[in-house]
Design a protein around this nucleic acid. Structure first.
Lengths: 142, 142
DNA sequence: TTAACAATTGAGATTCAGTCTCAATCTCAA
DNA sequence: TTGAGATTGAGACTGAATCTCAATTGTTAA
C-alpha cells in the first residue's frame, strides 16, 4: 500500500505535477477500498463523505494512477471499466461468473512464464497484462 | 469458417430464430473480414456496399454470434469493443502495443494448462477466456 | 514582492458506443 | 387465412467518459 501511494507521489514529482488536495483525497479513497471498484462508486463514496471532488477530477486522477502504475484498469465485459490497486501479486487473473457476476481472483506463476515466452518470441516489451476466464461458478453451474 | 457459419445457423435453429436476409448479410461480412473488427466498421462497410442493415440489427446480430460461440468479443482497453471470429486456435491471446496500437496474435498451449488448473482449483466451468499483454512492440520500444 | 506562466479544478456541455422503443413487416404452423 | 411470435429500421435514449473554459491555485524568475 505505502509503496503504491509513494509510487504515485513520485510519478507526480517526476512529471512536475502537483500532489493536490483532490489527488490526495482520491488516492486515500482508492487505497482504503479493497479489491475492485468502479469510477462512479468512488465518486459517490466521496460524495457520501462530503469530500467534494468533481467527476472530471476523479477520472483524470484515475488516469494518472494508472499511468503511474499503482492502479490498473480492468474490463469484465461490461460497458464501464473497473479498477483495482496493484498488489504485490504479479501473476494475477480473474474468474468471472457469467450468471451471478461473482469475481474470483487467482494467482498463477504460469502467467509469468507465458509472458516471458511471448515477449521474447515477438520482441515485445510487456508492461502489464489482463487475463479473464469467463464461465460458471460452483453455485451457478448445473 | 464453414463450420463457424454452420454453427451459427444451428444455434438459430435450436432457438427457433430465423436465418433472415439481414443475419445472412452480417454473417457473410463478418467471415469475409480477417482478424479483428469493430461493430461500427462492419456497419459502414455494409453501407458502402449498399447493403442496408440498421445499426440495431448489427448489434443484435453480433450478440447472437457471440452467444452462438462463433464470434468473440474482445476488449483492448479502448472504449468500444472489438470482435473476432473464432478460429480453430483455442489457446489464443493478444499483444497490444501501447504506442502504435499494433496487435499481434499468439497461440500458446500454456493457456490451456492454466485454464484447467484454475477451473479445477476454483470449481469453475470455464467457457472462454481473454488474455492481453500490453506493452511496446519492437518498433516502439527504445 | 510581484509579474508571468503553468497546472488544477468544477460545472456542465458534449461525445459516442451501445440499447431501447415501437410500429410496420415478415414467417410459418394450424 | 389467421394469428402469434420473430424481425426489422429509425430514431430516441442512456450512461460512461471526455472536453471546454473560466476561475483558482501553485511556481518560478526577476
Amino acid at each position: 500500500m505505502f509503496n503504491q501511494k509513494k509510487k504515485f507521489q513520485e510519478y507526480l514529482k517526476s512529471k512536475s505535477l502537483a500532489f493536490s488536495k483532490e489527488r490526495k483525497i482520491i488516492l486515500d479513497e482508492v487505497f482504503s477500498t479493497s479489491g475492485h471498484f468502479e469510477a462512479e462508486d468512488l465518486l459517490f463514496s466521496l460524495r457520501k463523505k462530503k469530500k467534494r471532488v468533481s467527476r472530471a477530477t476523479v477520472y483524470r486522477t484515475l488516469d494518472l494512477l494508472v499511468k503511474s502504475g499503482s492502479v490498473s484498469k480492468i474490463n469484465f465485459g461490461e460497458a464501464h471499466s473497473h479498477y483495482e490497486h496493484i498488489l504485490e501479486q504479479e501473476y494475477h487473473g480473474h474468474l468471472v461468473c457469467l450468471k451471478c457476476g461473482k469475481i474470483i481472483e487467482f494467482e498463477n506463476e504460469k502467467i509469468g512464464k507465458l509472458k516471458n515466452e511471448e515477449a521474447k518470441r515477438n520482441n515485445f516489451q510487456i508492461m502489464r497484462h489482463s487475463l479473464e476466464f469467463y464461465g460458471y461458478c460452483s453455485r451457478c453451474r448445473k
